[in-house]
């Protein structure tokens, strides 16, 4: 009897947080939905979405952002995977200090890092534009791709690799059939840590292109902060939210397939 009651009261410890989550996580998201479907007098409207889908500027920015995010993620993966692999496999004898040096920039204020990049560009007389944007994005997000992959490869059960080699697989086969598939969870979280932030970032984009190029995050921020088009900004946030939801559902199904 004591036991049962005790367990019962222990769950009450979570109540403050559950209330907090409701007030400051669930309610704010509800606010996005409410504002997205209202005009500035508070009446129900779909105009905010009509505005998004009929104005080529907004919808172009959306797809342009996806494109930039796609290429950033791809470049980060292509540069980051070999680095993570070399550091994660003990046979390359890379010191942990070197591995830590890759992670160090991650704990560094990203705006400062971006400004440093911009300064280097201006030092080298490189005009700011799409090229510098891509470079800066990769520069900013590369550690976020390397870290999860490095983690997965390092923690991988190396005896599987040895077993494959003993059974006659060569280096290439071991890599393609064992190491790469086993590192996929790290790759997935690397992609998640690079793709969405690239779409939604606005300060980095603004600084890297002197506001010449706008990504989806930039137009959300502009509309919200202007105050005039608050509801339109909310609608854009809502679109982004739906997009996040869809990508996460996709990720979930991927996970289920992995388990099979």
């Amino acid at each position: 009897m004591f036991h049962f009651n005790d367990i019962h009261t222990r769950s009450r410890w979570a109540w403050p947080y559950i209330i907090f989550l409701f007030c400051f996580v669930v309610m704010p998201l509800v606010m996005i939905v409410i504002y997205a479907f209202e005009d500035n007098t508070g009446a129900f409207t779909l105009n905010n979405f009509v505005r998004f889908f009929t104005r080529s500027e907004a919808i172009n920015t959306f797809f342009y952002s996806l494109g930039i995010a796609f290429y950033t993620t791809l470049v980060c993966f292509l540069l980051g995977f070999p680095a993570a692999y070399f550091m994660g496999m003990e046979e390359y004898k890379v010191s942990t200090v070197l591995a830590m040096l890759f992670i160090l920039p991650m704990s560094f204020n990203s705006l400062l890092r971006t400004i440093a990049t911009v300064e280097v560009f201006s030092l080298a007389n490189i005009p700011l534009g799409e090229g510098t944007l891509m470079f800066g994005m990769v520069y900013n997000f590369l550690p976020f791709m390397i870290y999860p992959i490095y983690n997965t490869i390092q923690k991988m059960d190396k005896s599987v690799i040895e077993a494959a080699r003993d059974l006659g697989a060569n280096r290439k086969e071991v890599f393609i059939k064992i190491i790469f598939p086993l590192s996929m969870p790290g790759v997935y979280s690397g992609i998640a840590m690079v793709f969405m932030p690239t779409v939604s970032t606005f300060a980095i984009t603004e600084l890297l292109t002197r506001n010449k190029i706008k990504l989806f995050g930039s137009i959300i921020q502009e509309n919200i902060q202007s105050g005039v088009l608050l509801n339109y900004g909310a609608a854009l946030s809502f679109i982004m939210l739906v997009f996040i939801l869809l990508t996460n559902l996709f990720n979930k199904t991927e996970g289920v397939n992995d388990e099979k």
Binding site: P28, S200, T201, I220, L241
Partner: peptide
């Protein structure tokens, strides 16, 4: 993403 948390 941060921006959604911030906006919400």
């Amino acid at each position: 993403p941060d921006i959604i948390t911030g906006v919400s």
